[in-house]
Design a protein around this nucleic acid. Structure first.
Lengths: 330, 330
DNA sequence: AACTAATATGCAAACGTTTGCAGAAACGTT
DNA sequence: AACGTTTCTGCAAACGTTTGCATATTAGTT
């Protein structure tokens, strides 16, 4: 790769002049400018970003830390992040932590050595509070999808509101005994969904159904087993609110395998609106998260933080959820 | 961040000595070594990777170029890539091209400026032959999932064999009139799947069904529409071989919406074995691709290329497909 | 016409490493 | 005891930029 000195020689100027033409900071005569530009074009010169990075202390790179890219909630958000990063001339480095805190720590260390400009985390959960130290050390950080306290910039869904609306909708359809099959309460997002569900029930004067509020359920298989046990125990809810679409899929399978029909016998409400959720049978009624948009917002905010030199107090941005009605609720 | 000079001062040696202790290349007396190590530990010194990169000409980074991370085939492969990269001390930069060649070119340019050590491409297709120039310019490159000629290192599935086995299986179940709903023949992988299907039919002495071999179908919605038209035209295959799981999902929906049952009336074979393929109703019989493993292999090969200084001829590695039998074929 | 001000350019240092070269010290050999 | 090796360490250059400072040129003012 050709470097700035060779361009300078070809144009008959010094390296500094070439640099000044390219960065455009300081006046350069029109004549030399065009001569330099011609040389740059002819030699197809591209400044070495690593040298620039060493000089400037940053490399226009952001670190994206997620638990697992195979989880279906991330790809869309990542896409939003990557697109905005690209538009602003940033590059995205991907890190999967498997919820493993040591792996996360190593990644952070490794990326800081590489002078990443900032971090985007979707790995927040109790035990990861040390992440909150990063901003204090001057490292720009934005949290995404999952939150961890109020003291850091975050982009999340209105989980409480989404769950509230979904529950209200089911109540409005005459369903009364609504089971709630939820993820781990360690994650605020599941806590908030639970609170939304409770609020709707309370306002409608309906009590929480006995033995039908179950937390700590994690994927489709877990959902399947849980629902199978529920039905085997003779419990028979009018509806099940699954707080993620994969859980909902497993639950629907369990209901079918028990010889019942969705939604005729039991309605099922999901949460997420993953890409395939309207492809399954029956198409899933669910609460949509604007994943792509969340990625875009988080990335924009991070870039703003980076380029403004870390000003301003941190802010939690809450995006609205949207109920999408299909056929799995009667 | 503390730099090497400060460590040197603290240990009472020169920066060179610190560097030598850390890289371990040249003998250093046991005594100074321990003194340096103590200082390093105490000050928590981490070498600046960008400075090392500038000096050494590479940054231990690989560029991963995919059409779209939202497409369900990539996340597992990416996971395999990322895991192996991490094990070897490499970092992965993610690029989505949307099959757009200009975007791809810009990414390549940008990453080369950043001194990436090599590229992993899943974007091969006609028109992208210029990618083949990169190895000639000394840039390590490995192709993955999609291939583009024999002259470059590649990791792909045995698409022909997978389709052959799947077709043979259906024939063995007594199915004769097997529709073939395929992707674009521009992509060798779809061409090969077609060839496998044809070979199995030929060996069984069964002809290709009239009007039931359809190419250029791309996602679930396209699959749905195509199958709806097929049925509306009064065509009634015994089975449909969809060359991707999403197409299969759309096709199953179409069959159901036409009042028929899968597999009692029409069997459906998929291809990919995406994560959710055994969650749908009926659980999908399909051809599994070892996505994760492909990612691992491709990444290993790239790292080998990088660290061996680009020796050796290029090789195409073909991984076996595996038929996974569930309930969508009778 | 002389002086100040503005404009345009180059030199050299700096970013944080690694590494060739050379010198110093310790050791072994005859 | 003199010399050649070996072992260890530091200096300084290099990687490719950007940028403060100094200088040279030009223009502007009186």
């Amino acid at each position: 790769m050709v470097n700035i000195k060779e361009v300078a020689k070809a144009a008959g100027v010094s390296a500094s002049t070439v640099s000044r033409v390219l960065t455009g900071k300081i006046p350069v005569s029109a004549e030399t400018k065009s001569r330099v530009l011609a040389a740059v074009a002819q030699m197809n010169y591209q400044p070495n970003a690593v040298a620039q990075g060493l000089k400037g202390g940053r490399l226009h790179t952001i670190g994206l830390v997620v638990p697992n890219i195979r989880s279906l909630v991330f790809p869309a958000a990542i896409r939003g992040i990557e697109d905005t990063a690209e538009q602003h001339g940033y590059t995205v480095v991907l890190c999967n932590t498997d919820e493993n805190i040591d792996k996360e720590r190593l990644y952070i260390e490794s990326l800081r050595r590489r002078l990443v400009d900032g971090f985007l985390f979707s790995t927040a959960r109790p035990g990861h509070e040390y992440l909150l130290d990063l901003p204090d050390e001057g490292v720009p950080v934005v949290f995404l999808i999952r939150q961890l306290g109020k003291s850091v910039n975050t982009v999340v869904l209105d989980n409480e509101g989404g769950a509230y609306e979904a529950t209200r909708y089911m109540l409005g359809r005459g369903l009364r005994k609504i089971a709630f099959i939820n993820g781990s309460l360690d994650l605020p997002l599941y806590r908030h969904r639970y609170e939304g569900y409770q609020r709707a029930l309370r306002e409608a004067g309906v009590g929480e159904p006995d033995k039908l509020v179950i937390h700590d359920i994690s994927g489709w298989d877990d959902g399947y087993e849980t629902m199978t046990e529920v039905l085997a125990a003779g419990l028979r809810p009018d509806a099940v609110f699954a707080t993620s679409d994969p859980k909902a899929m497993g639950i629907i399978r369990a209901i079918r395998d028990a010889g019942l029909q969705v939604p005729q016998d039991i309605s099922v409400m999901g949460f997420d609106n993953l890409d395939f959720s309207n492809q399954i049978d029956p198409p899933l009624t669910t609460v949509a998260q604007p994943f792509y948009e969340m990625g875009v917002r988080a990335c924009r905010r991070l870039i703003h933080l980076i380029e403004s030199g870390r000003s301003g107090r941190s802010k939690i941005e809450v995006l609205p959820a949207q109920l999408v009605i299909r056929k799995s609720v009667i």
